[in-house]
Simulated scan of single mutants.
Amino acid sequence: MENVRGRTVLVTGASAGIGKAFAKVFAAKGWNVILTARRLDRLEALAVEIEAKYKVGAIAIEQDLAAPDSVDKLVAAISDRRVLTVDGLVNNAGFSVPGHYAKTAWADQERFLRVMVTVPCELAHVLLPPMVQRRFGRIINVASLAGLIPGAAGHTLYGASKAFLIRFSESLLLENRRANVLTTALCPGFTYTEFHDVIGTRDKVSKYGKAWWSTSAEVAVAGYDGVMAGKPIVVVGRRAKQISALMKVLPESVALGMVGRQSKTFRSEEPGTSDNEPS
């Protein structure tokens, strides 16, 4: 196994949930961490905790990734802190836009696409060439079980964005693994984070039993182990794995009908925007 102590990883959406868990998992393995999100107070508290507990470097950078120039500002801020190399990237930041597509505001959907699709691609595009040159890199794109099943009514672009991340991750892996730059799409099912509270579906998803749920730590550990092993896709959660396997064998029309019938049990019907960093 390669020695990763002293390497540096950038984690987006690191102030809570899966992103926070990822920061701790990487730090426990000896990585220095760069934490970015919109909530600086949470980031700074996490940075202090990580430095004290794991004896690695931790930097907190406030950044709203929905802003058009956010990646340029983030990269500049990293450079200003004299970070010479970024060896890992966890694209975790995200949110969802509840409601049916026609009832939502395009401005909200545009922000969604930037955070969920454009920023992960842009960050990878910036950080990938030096990784290839140094012949070491690890990229985790936090996707979802939603990217492996047919689209559902409501939160219209969410599953589509996650499916995009899965295919994007596969292509990056194929293009760069000979240079020891590995990419994994992480596909958790229901995860204990703030996500469902923020988008207003906590009462609906709470009806699902414990077998449906994973902790943020479980998801982050699975993602870390998966990318270090060079796995293109990692599905997390017992029920998520069962559903993923089932969708591979069902006819598309049958699978679409099943998802359609279940949509109202876990998706909000109210339009609006819900920023949430755990994704």
Rank of each mutant, 00 (worst) to 15 (best):
217 A>W: 07
30 G>E: 01
174 L>G: 05
162 K>G: 01
100 H>R: 14
68 P>T: 07
237 G>A: 08
105 A>I: 10
238 R>M: 15
254 V>H: 02
42 R>L: 15
178 R>I: 04
217 A>R: 14
116 M>W: 10
197 D>W: 09
263 S>E: 09
225 D>F: 07
184 T>Y: 04
64 D>E: 13
214 S>R: 09
201 T>Y: 04
137 G>Q: 13
271 P>M: 01
171 S>D: 11
237 G>S: 05
266 F>L: 10
114 R>Y: 10
2 E>W: 07
153 A>E: 11
193 T>K: 12
173 L>N: 13
254 V>F: 10
36 T>G: 03
264 K>L: 12
235 V>Y: 04
40 L>Y: 12
15 S>F: 00
193 T>G: 09
151 G>K: 06
82 R>P: 03
5 R>M: 03
246 L>A: 15
279 S>I: 11
233 I>R: 15
21 A>Y: 03
5 R>L: 05
237 G>M: 07
178 R>S: 05
4 V>W: 01
102 A>D: 06
237 G>R: 05
155 H>E: 09
219 V>F: 02
57 G>H: 14
161 S>V: 07
188 P>N: 09
59 I>N: 03
111 R>K: 15
96 S>E: 06
70 S>H: 09
40 L>Q: 08
75 V>M: 07
24 K>E: 15
136 F>T: 01
196 H>R: 05
57 G>A: 12
247 M>H: 01
36 T>R: 01
133 Q>I: 09
199 I>H: 03
212 W>K: 04
186 L>R: 05
121 C>H: 15
134 R>Y: 00
118 T>Y: 12
66 A>V: 07
1 M>H: 06
222 A>I: 00
134 R>I: 05
159 G>A: 13
96 S>H: 00
99 G>P: 11
40 L>V: 10
183 T>V: 15
234 V>P: 04
170 E>C: 10
235 V>D: 12
122 E>G: 08
117 V>R: 13
81 R>H: 12
